[in-house]
Every structure is written in structure tokens, then in C-alpha cells.
Nucleic acid binder design. Sequence first.
DNA 1: TATGAATGAGAATTCATTCAT
DNA 2: GATGAATGAATTCTCATTCAT
Lengths: 220, 220, 220, 220
Amino acid sequence: MPRTDCKARMPKPKAAAPRDAEKTRARILRAARNEFMRHGYSGARIERISRTGRSSDRMIYYYFGSKEALYLDVLEGVYAELGAAEAELDLDTRHPVAALSELVTFTWHYYLAHPEFVALLSNENLMRGRHIAKSATVKQLSRPVLGILGTILAEGVRQKLFCRGLEVNRVYLTLAALGYFYLSNRYTLSSFLGTELMHPNQCEAWLAEIQRVMLASVAA
Amino acid sequence: MPRTDCKARMPKPKAAAPRDAEKTRARILRAARNEFMRHGYSGARIERISRTGRSSDRMIYYYFGSKEALYLDVLEGVYAELGAAEAELDLDTRHPVAALSELVTFTWHYYLAHPEFVALLSNENLMRGRHIAKSATVKQLSRPVLGILGTILAEGVRQKLFCRGLEVNRVYLTLAALGYFYLSNRYTLSSFLGTELMHPNQCEAWLAEIQRVMLASVAA
Amino acid sequence: MPRTDCKARMPKPKAAAPRDAEKTRARILRAARNEFMRHGYSGARIERISRTGRSSDRMIYYYFGSKEALYLDVLEGVYAELGAAEAELDLDTRHPVAALSELVTFTWHYYLAHPEFVALLSNENLMRGRHIAKSATVKQLSRPVLGILGTILAEGVRQKLFCRGLEVNRVYLTLAALGYFYLSNRYTLSSFLGTELMHPNQCEAWLAEIQRVMLASVAA
Amino acid sequence: MPRTDCKARMPKPKAAAPRDAEKTRARILRAARNEFMRHGYSGARIERISRTGRSSDRMIYYYFGSKEALYLDVLEGVYAELGAAEAELDLDTRHPVAALSELVTFTWHYYLAHPEFVALLSNENLMRGRHIAKSATVKQLSRPVLGILGTILAEGVRQKLFCRGLEVNRVYLTLAALGYFYLSNRYTLSSFLGTELMHPNQCEAWLAEIQRVMLASVAA
DNA sequence: TATGAATGAGAATTCATTCAT
DNA sequence: GATGAATGAATTCTCATTCAT
């Protein structure tokens, strides 16, 4: 039982006394996002969050009320950001192949750049969507991506580039699955496949593969 | 007083105290698998496991030594079972399309029938593969599937049914991703897509879609 | 209902929950010292400490982090107190015999008045100095006694009262051994010798004996 | 939380199946002596004893009944051995100085060769002689040393080599203290004095010092 | 004579949360 | 808006000990 870190309260370390509600709240939220990503809901520790966020346990309760509420806030934030990013997508649906390709790229890069999104979603699913079911906010968040994809597919069919009978939900599922799974399961996959999946070259190659598969699967 | 049924009860009212090491160990293991699946590593409770397994906390430590060791044992078991199932696959590689299709079906049904496999793998990845990295056993387990798939692809190319340049790892990733993601993320997906993904019809339809995508992606 | 004395009691019937960190910490430390003295490290119980210290198990971890850290804190405190007491010694080294005699008396009385010092040291030695080795603090504590004794001996030699060739370390060892052993081993000794060693008369007599032996052993 | 040693019960390691009551008992006793020496009563672990003694927890209860009874057995053994060794002392009391010197040497070497004696006695004292008080056996054990020492002192006085008025108990206490303390407190002393007390040279020198002090303290 | 399985009481430690200022 | 002190209910794990064979 080595004494690596000293957990005992020492008299007044006093590092930063913010006095700025917004910033404190934001720091906590950022720290929480990181903590929940790394450890999941059960594994996350209030104390670690408050420490990382240079605040105190007490403040977390002051601002968020409970661990669960904080978690929900994080979750909603992560969803909202994705929604916002999707809303900014400006695809030229007149060129369905290019548009689809761009959508694939966007999705992949989003997952890649937002590991916390992937981790939090996986965690939420592990908990059988317990929190997401509760969140009114998440349900109201617009996820325009299905609409966009629908438009692309329709135009593709009209231009006889894409085959008929494509279901937007299924195409989206394929698109998401190919990007998400590669990242969410990278640890066990690396071990199984013996490849360093996160190496930039590998990532690029995988994006190309997703593109290839997606196009093949919708092609007329 | 609790209900006393016809047969006279001896002074030991204990639920079950069988002097059978193998069975006790197995019951604990089964209970643990279920608990870790439902709650992840951190959320799992030793006490719940011992209760479900009709044993005691103490016996868990007697047989497994620690929560972590128990978790590892569960993980290894789940892996070993998949390996064994894959080893029993008997595909006729002379017909590559049918063989690939069967492999897809097998994989999908395996995930579907073994939610604990999906959940435990997701959890392990959430923990950044911490435990799997430690397990010598898991690394030694044979996963013959890559070999099988390689043979199928080679034969497909030889018969000019499949396109050249396919990488077995990537094809496998696609195959796994399409099945795994649908199930691992069903809660958030259901909420987002507004579909009841686990309805048998939906499941069947999704298997058909995986088949379609897979074939399209390897077709010559 | 517990006795309600004249002053009206607020809803908190708790024994003592003083919002005074210093006092709480001190109470715990005192209780711990007592507990470790009585039962040694392994035998000591966190729960007993928290009860005696009118606090809670939780607070012990709040302030000290672990049982081991608490033990170390106690040990350091006990050492520090001895160091402080030695530092206050004001011996007139011009009269070496009297000074030595006073030092003997001081040491004996210190051991006698601080059974926790004797017990904790014995316990620490039983554990092969495991904790003391870790403690940076203990090593830095000044124990001026060797210096003082050195001066006394030198002056005694100069005045031809003490014999030449005395080694300060050995003289100190003798001095300490004679006092310490009598107290540390009093239970087995009482049983063996059939004397009530802790009777005040016996104690006084033993001090006289130490004086006699010490003087005889340094006399010219 | 590293998994250094595997504490889980593995199916049948089966190393040695003694089938010799006496030997098994003896092995357990030896292991117990070692364990109690190293860890004290509270710190000692039945399981470690059974492992070291190549037996099982169950056997300890079979032969000794309880941890406490085992401890007592060890304690009594250690005392009995000392008594036996003292009984074998064959000092020529006609030469009191030489005889005293021999007794000193014997005592010192006994302590040096039997660290378990020193440790167990210290531990017993830490527990305020709780067990020794209970043991009828220990009380009956003859410790002839006081008689021997008495004879030596009387003869020394008769030969005008030793001073009058010496009390055998006190002389014995001095003798024991000087040897015992050096060894029992060697860890804290080493740290304080900065000497490697257990180095053979140091040990020899200390024996010489004890001789010197003893002679000086009894000399006429 | 021996053993593996089982147990209950307790041990240290953790954690989210609330109180008082 | 902020903080340090305090808490109670768990939670993992340990330990001496007994049961059944």
C-alpha cells in the first residue's frame, strides 16, 4: 500500500478563486465531460472532476445539483454540438456522389475529433439509454442529418446514380456504423487485428474504405 | 415464519450451499457475466453478483481473488466462447458468395444471441482495454475467423466474383461494424431514428441489409 | 430521550460536530496515538479511533488519507515531542556529574510520562522500522541529545572525572536501554521477577540504580 | 491495484501430504513462530502460517484450536527453550568475574541468536502481557538464571571483588536491558544513531561494552 | 489424519452529498 | 459566489473459524 498521492486535506492550498460563475461552470463541465468519457458514469468521480476543473465538490452541487444532472448536462452538450455541426453542413446536393462522400468525411472526422462523443454514447448505451430517455432536451435537439441524407439519396436516384429502394435510415446506419465502430472498439480491435488502428495512415485508409463501401452500397 | 412446504426442513434454511466447487464457481461466473454486462465494471456490485449467484461475497474472493480478477475471468470466458463458436464454423469456401453470406449471418446471430459479448467488449473499450491488455489468456485465444474470411475472399477473387485488392482486415471490420454497432448503440439509435430496432422484423431486415452491403462492397 | 439541560438544544443531538478543523484533527490524532499505543498498528481499529476522537471514520480519511498515513503522523508527532523536550534541556555542563545525572533523570521521566512513546517505538521496531524508513519528517527531526551528552562527557574527561575513550553513542545506548527496557518489558519482567515494577517506590529505586550504573560506567 | 499474487483458489496444487502428525504440528509451530515474530499477534495471518508450514488453515485448528492458543504455544515454546538453555549453563562460580562475564556473553548471544524470542517478548509486552498472564505453563517454567546470578554475586562479594548491597534482580535487569534493547530497538536506533548496529563488528563491540558496564557496576 | 468449501462478522476505504459560514 | 468541514450509506475486501466429507 504505497502512498502515491496524498489524499489528506492539507490546510489551504488555494490555487485559483475564480469569482466568475460562467467560467467556473464551464470549467466544471469540461472536466466532467473528460471524466465521464474516461470512466463512464459509475466510474466517474465527483472529486476528480472538481479537481480537474479547479473547483470544489461543493460547486458542482451548487451549479448542477447532482452527479446525474451533471452527466445529463454533459450528454446534452455533446449532442447539441453534433447537431450544431450537422446544421453547418452545406452540401451541394446537386452532385449526390460528392455530397455523400462529403457527408461520410464529415461524420468520420467528427467522430475522430470528438472521442468524448463516441465514449459518452457508448456509455449511455451500456446503461441502456437510461439518461437519454429522461432528457427532454436531447429529444428536441434537431439532427438535420437524416434530412440531408434523404435529399442526397433522392437526387442520386433521380440522376440514376444510385439504386432505387434505398432507405435513408439504413444508409445512415451503415455510414455511422463504419466510422463509429472502428473508433469505439479500437482497443479490442487493435489487439485482435494486430494493427495500430489509430495511426494517421490507418485512419486515412479507413476513411477511404468507408467511402468505397458506401458508394458501392448505394450505386445503381 | 416463511412458508413451510410439505417436506420437513432441516435447521439450515440457506438458499443454496452446495459443496460443489465447480457449480458454485460456475454460478458466480454466470452471475458476474450478467452483472458486468448490465452495469459495466465500475457499476457492477460484488454483492449483487453473490446474491444472484446464490453464494456469498466471501466465496467470490475465495474463487477469484478480486473484483478485477473476476471481471477478467468473465472477459476471457466470453472471448473463449466466441473463439469456440468460430472454430465450429464449417463453411464451404468453394462457393464464396454463399460462404460470405453465411459468415455474415453467423456473426450477426452471434452478436444477437450474446448481448453480454457486445456489452462487455464495449465496456472494455470504454476502459481503454485496460484489462484485456493484462490478460495473457485472451491474447492466446485463437480467433480463426480472419483465416476463414481470407480463404473466402481469395476464392472469390479466383472465381472472378469478388474484386481484387480486398484486405481481409478491412472486410472483417466492415462486417463486424455493421452488426455490432446496430446492437451496441441500439438505445441511442432507437431514440434518434424513431424505430424499434430490436423488433424481430427490423433485425431480419438489418441482416438483409448487411448482406447487401457486404456483397456490394466485395463484388467484382 | 436524553437529558435536556437548561439551554434549549437545536435539532442536532450529535455528540460533537465542531466546525473546527484544527480541533477535530487534533482529537483524532490524540485518539489514534492512544489506540496505536494500546494495540499496535495491525491491532488498531479505525472505528475505535474515530469513536474515541468523537469523530467519524470518514473524517480520518478526510484528514489523513489512510490508516498508514495516520500512523505515520502519530509517530512523527511522538518523535517531534521528544525532540522538543530534549531541546528544552538546559544542563550546566560545567558540572558533568550533575549534568549526566540530570540527563538520566530527564530521560527516565520522559519514558515514564510518555508510555505512548515507548509503545510506539517498540511497535515500529516490531515492524522492522517499516514506516520510519518512509518518513522524511522523522529523519529531519533534530535530536540534540547526542550533542549534549557529548559535551558532558568531554567536560567530564577534561575535569578527570570521567574515564577516557568513552563513545557518546554507546553511553547514550546504555542510558536509554536501562530506562526503556524496564518500561517496555514491564509485563514479562513483572511476571518473571515477581515484583510490581510500576510501583512508585520501585520506579524511584530503579532510577537510582540507573544513576549508579551510569556513573560507575563513566567514572575515571 | 496490481495483481501481484494470485489469491484465488486454484484447483489442487497439492505439494506435500505429510501424514505425520508430529512433523505437521512441528512445521506449523515453526511457521507460526516466524509469523508472530514478523507481524505480532494481530498482524499474523493464519493463512500465511499454514502456507509457510505447508499445511492448511484447517490443520491449525485441528492441532491448536485457535489463533490465540497457537500463539500461546509458540510463546511457551520460546520461553521453554530459554529456560532449557539457561539450565545448561555451567558456570564456575568460584571465579565470579569470569562467571559474570560468561553470563553476559551467554545472554547476549542468546538474544542475538533468537530474534524470535526478542520479538515475541516485545509483542507480548505491547499487548500488556495479556497472554502470558493466562499461561499456566509459562509461570511454571524454571528460569534458573536468577539463582545462578545470585550465587555469582554472593561469591564476588565474599571475595571482595564486588561491592556490597547488590540486588540480584537489578543486576539482572541491567544485564538484560543492555542486550535486549540494542536488538529490540535496532531499527529506530540505527536511524537515530546513523550506525549499522547489526554489523558483526558493531555487535562484538557492544558485547564488550556490556561487559565493561556490568563489571564497572558491580565492582567493589 | 486430512482437506476443500463455506461463512459471518468486521475491516479499511470510498463516494455522493449536505451543513454552516 | 464560494468554501471547508462533515456525514451516512455503501463497497470492496479480509480474517478467523467451522462444516461436510
